[in-house]
Design a protein around this nucleic acid. Sequence first.
DNA 1: CGTTGTAAGCTTACGTCGTACACAAAATAG
DNA 2: CTATTTTGTGTACGACGTAAGCTTACAACG
Lengths: 199, 199
Amino acid sequence: MNAPRRGRGRPAVLTRERIVAAAVDVLDAEGLDALTMRRLGSRLGVAAMSLYRHLPNREAVLAAVVDRLFAEAVVDLGTGMSWPEALTGFAVAYRRMLLSHPQAVPLLATHPVDIDRGRELLAGLLGTFEAAGVTPHDAVTAVQSVGVYVLGHALAQVGGNPSLDDAALRFYDEWFEAGLGAMVRGFAVNALRGTPPPA
Amino acid sequence: MNAPRRGRGRPAVLTRERIVAAAVDVLDAEGLDALTMRRLGSRLGVAAMSLYRHLPNREAVLAAVVDRLFAEAVVDLGTGMSWPEALTGFAVAYRRMLLSHPQAVPLLATHPVDIDRGRELLAGLLGTFEAAGVTPHDAVTAVQSVGVYVLGHALAQVGGNPSLDDAALRFYDEWFEAGLGAMVRGFAVNALRGTPPPA
DNA sequence: CGTTGTAAGCTTACGTCGTACACAAAATAG
DNA sequence: CTATTTTGTGTACGACGTAAGCTTACAACG
């Protein structure tokens, strides 16, 4: 399963995977500002400069973290559902990931997932629309709109106070479902109408 | 109109207002990373440390910029409209501000507007809902949902490529209106139904 | 006028950041 | 054993935010 042994040189103690995993740990535990090259190195028992053998710079570390977290969000989205169900399921799974990595939310907001990678990860969801006869263009519009809503909502929830009491949590959950429901309903209405181009 | 002369000491060349205005200029021209205390000072013909006489730290500068930009977005929202019209108008005005300060979008995303200040600036819009018999709770839900969608959408548009061709701009505009329309329509459906609590 | 008090701006300095560059260490191939 | 190759390290530089103390430029008072 692991094969970092490629032949000649000094054996690698670091791997891209190990670095990214450690980066997620540091991010969750200490926040985005604490995710420095030195801190990440020390977490791995290694000097900061060693990381540059595996990733070109800090931006690349952040991009890799974004990719890993988004992939974590969209595994097992389930199949055999109508597109409104699948779309809602995606929103819920995405939100669950964001709330379980609250310190990552500002990062996800500022470093969008690579667009092709995003389409790849969401192929199943988009297929649900296609099976229902929705055009790819409209499907992408709906999925992106919902994604953008979920991220924006998590930003608002997490950006304010880091920790919230139960009442506040209920409030945000209610609000989330209200906005999500409104949007999905709105798209469904449009689809039933035969999707006239937006005026 | 201006009264920086308060009596005793050395006359002030700096004002909080002047600093914030310069900060917006630097942000628009060179981006968030370039908005450093030294750069801001040099823009004003002043040493970096001089800024600390007027604002406690860099975070306060950023917060002041956020406040100023959001206030810029919501002046003149118009009156005498139904709440769906007013809500759509708010979304359009907010989006216009974001797209005319693209470098500020990540800042707005990470530094939410102060909640009380936000309610104050949006009092007129919320009144439109009240006049139509919508509960304050539902009004806040709808306004925040739309705000979150607009910001998230601008993040997606601006975060990808900094400059876009006409086709891409049309694509984003279409997408924006589709998602916004869906959401407003969804809330309207709910309101007509008498606003049952979200399941 | 000179002196004094006070607010505003300046200089210097410290610790931290990302990272360029040259080097040391640890393995395999011959 | 030696040469080769890959990985990790040490040092150093410039830029950042900002703490502390100093200087400057005014108004008020004598």
